[in-house]
Design a protein around this nucleic acid. Structure first.
Length: 465
RNA sequence: GGCCCCUUCGUCUAGCGGUUAGGAUCCAUGGUUUUCAUCCAUGUUACAGGAGUUCAAUUCUCCUAGGGGUCACCA
């Protein structure tokens, strides 16, 4: 069974890059009827917060990603790590190193001065003398000092490292006894049965160290997939300063989860020419072998397009519900279907949609001057007055087509084109050009509000002349 | 700096030795629309550079350049 994982360190909100690796891991597990588990890497007590973990969970919930089983917290597994550290000590695969920080720094400086790679020199590797006073030892693993380490990567292919280039006896437990990252990652992945690791490219050079741990402990090495980074517009690694990288910020901006997911799944992954993927299709089609090898730049143009696409497809009922978060309450509005059908065609985000609804529902408080100049030429006022009269005379007015008939009637009566009535009427009703068809607008507003807006506009522009 | 990774339209990408180098987005133009948007159609734009290998390279190899990652008692 395929078991994947997402292993964030809870130091802040969940950002786009993290979400994408989580998504890839989730999809791959689902496709294989496997498991996707969540592990919180909170061993560094100073930098972690509970809120951050909750933020991650919240984002998952919004997007419909669900982790299988219990969440694992590394901070609660000290006993486990201690056990394996002791095992390595007992097997002479690790040892205590009494080098002080000062000594270590001195060594590094000397190596730097000689233009050598900073590297622990192994001075306590076979130490059996009396330990120096006053130094709490760290524990270092005996890493291979020569030979090759090959990472079999599902995205990049086999990558060859020379041990002497990259390895030294790295620390697996700090002076206070707490284990370090490369050690716990390997231990946890092994113990949790994770056999397919999908993670960011930035972990690629850590992988040989983790392989050292796997081998020392006799664990099976999982299959790795290192997915390329997502860069910002400047071509640099995404950071918190890159505007909206917080996943939940996208919710506030009016993006739909299906749009964000679709956008992210296509960032660095493809399935031929297909652009639109439902959640089901993603689970069916995702395969890490189709992950791209190169980094991608994060650019939201396509996200906007996808979001517009999904807004068009979503039910009005659902839309009404979503709009409440943007201060729009339509559930009791009798013409909400008509309104939403007209508006969802032209909104890129829910926030935009909310604004459009407001602009129709609210009586205009001012009129766009340029548009007024253009529209209120000639006998525009007269046309509006006649149109208003015909509206009053009409018997039943409900649907857009009812209003449309009246517009046509006036056009015929006065022997004018559609524009002659359309433009001033649009100004009267909405205060500016643009927006849905006027018949639709009037149907939504109803006869009284329509008449009232026309009257107000007529008064305003009669006074002007 | 050492090590490692990457390089097709502005952006996301297809391509897996022989293609008029395809799609999407963006942009532009036209059509539909009383307006705006949608929608439809059309168009501009790409194989980083140089050597090989080969009858034939975007595709394979090497080099160069550029970009990125990583080198902790952070994760």
């Amino acid at each position: 069974m395929v078991v994947t994982r997402f292993a964030p360190s809870p130091t802040g909100y969940l950002h786009i890059g993290g979400l994408r690796t989580a998504l890839f891991s989730y999809l791959w597990a689902k496709k294989n009827n496997g498991k996707f588990v969540l592990r919180i890497e909170d061993t560094d007590k100073k930098r972690n917060s509970k809120e951050a973990t909750e933020a991650i969970l919240k984002a998952f919930e919004w997007l419909g990603l669900e982790a299988d089983g219990e969440i694992t917290y590394q901070s609660r597994r000290d006993a486990i790590y201690a056990k394996y550290i002791q095992q390595l000590l007992d097997e002479d695969k690790a040892y205590k190193c009494y080098m002080s920080k000062e000594e270590l720094n001195a060594l590094r400086e000397e190596q730097m001065a000689n233009k050598e790679r900073a590297k622990y020199d192994g001075r306590y590797r076979n130490f059996d003398g009396t330990p120096p006073e006053g130094v709490e030892p760290v524990i270092r693993i005996k890493a291979p000092l020569s030979g090759e380490i090959i990472v079999h990567d599902g995205v990049k292919g086999d990558i060859l490292f020379q041990a002497e280039d990259i390895l030294d006896d790295f620390v697996i437990a700090r002076a206070d006894g707490s284990p370090t990252y490369n050690f716990v990652v390997a231990v946890d992945d092994a113990l949790m049965g994770i056999n397919e690791v999908i993670r960011g490219d930035d972990h690629l050079s850590n992988t040989p160290k983790q392989i050292v741990v796997y081998e020392a402990l006799g664990f099976d090495i999982p299959k790795f997939y290192h997915v390329p980074m997502i860069f910002n517009q400047q071509g640099k690694k995404l950071s918190k300063r890159d505007g909206a990288t917080d996943v939940m910020a996208y919710k506030e901006m009016g993006y739909l989860p299906e749009a964000l997911l679709n956008f992210l799944v296509r960032l660095g992954w493809s399935h031929g020419d297909q652009e639109i993927f439902s959640a089901e299709e993603m689970r069916e089609l995702f395969d890490p072998k189709d992950i791209n090898r190169s980094a991608s730049i994060y650019n939201t143009e396509k996200l906007d397009w996808l979001n517009a696409h999904y807004i068009k497809k979503i039910s009005n009922e659902k839309l009404t519900e979503l709009l409440t978060e943007f201060g729009i309450l339509l559930s009791s509005h009798d013409k909400k279907e008509i309104l939403l059908n007209a508006l969802k065609e032209r909104a890129k985000t829910l926030k935009e949609l909310a604004l459009m609804v407001e602009e129709i529902i609210q009586t205009p408080t001012s009129y766009d001057e340029k548009a007024v100049k253009k529209a209120f030429k000639g006998n525009a006022v007269k046309i509006l007055e006649i149109f208003a009269n015909r509206l009053e005379e009409a018997s039943e007015l409900h649907l857009p087509s009812d209003y449309h008939h009246i517009m046509e009637k006036v056009i015929k009566e006065m022997e004018i084109g559609f524009g002659k009535i359309g433009q001033p009427l649009r100004i009267a009703l909405l205060g500016k050009m643009g927006g849905p068809g006027l018949d639709t607008v009037m149907a939504v507003l109803g006869r009284n509000e329509t008449l009232s807006r026309i009257t107000k506009a007529v008064l305003t522009h009669t006074a002007d002349d």
